[in-house]
Design a protein around this nucleic acid. Sequence first.
DNA 1: AATGTCTCCAACCGCCTGTGA
DNA 2: CTCACAGGCGGTTGGAGACAT
Length: 260
Amino acid sequence: MVRAPCCEKMGLKKGPWTPEEDQVLIAYIQRYGHGNWRALPKQAGLLRCGKSCRLRWTNYLRPDIKRGNFTREEEEAIIKLHELLGNRWSAIAARLPGRTDNEIKNVWHTHLKKRLHQNPTTASRPAVGPDCAAYLRQTHRHPHLDLPTNQQQQRQQQQQLEMFLLESPLSPPQQQSSSDLSSPSSSSSPSNHTIFSIKDDESLKEFNGYYWSDAPSMEDPSTCQEGFNYSKLQPIQLVDNESMDFWLNLLVETDTLPDI
DNA sequence: AATGTCTCCAACCGCCTGTGA
DNA sequence: CTCACAGGCGGTTGGAGACAT
């Protein structure tokens, strides 16, 4: 079934914005705000759809946007946040003031991903948490991984992790979703967080090997039974603020981990 | 200088979610 | 509860400029 277009395409302009259009949009938003994106272009006299206006504003025209190249620190932050949050560009952008999700996504695909591929061992370590597992599942490298298949559950877990990272470390933890990662966490109290750790160095090496590998066999689900043994992942219960601080530091400052 | 190839990024597309009637 | 709508998000693409031959 073909989905109807988001807006009436007839007579609406597409493609790059002209400086004149930018000025019209800026002037309108500065004067009236952007309460209703769908109605905005008509009211502002723009031959664009609301979506296009919103995108142009949020990704380019907003006054608080930082232009120019990403600093090394910003790139490192993106790498680390990507490890934790996956392809949740808006969540990553929320932690990088002045940068947009689109910009971060572009930087990731054009620079950072390549860098990680070229030199995975010097890059930051992959996250050992829900998103890492979700990533493995999404890429079909380990479809047998015993984690929630429900997309909503995954999203809830990601949101919890994000909240955990965004909140003050001393604030009370969020309640965990009903059926959490793997079975052990089902025993966790509502105030606990579950983060996965790897039991020993040998398992860590093995895990990283599979995580970073692009070997064709890993793309073949039939070979996955011979893949990483996920019994080597163990859940960690964060029962107090002190351990929350510890894992927050560990997850964010991955440089503190020993080299493989 | 001309042509082909590659890289990058702004913008689009379609899906998902939240909200209000 | 259901439906429609609007906003938001992530994946993808097309074209312009850079670079290589």
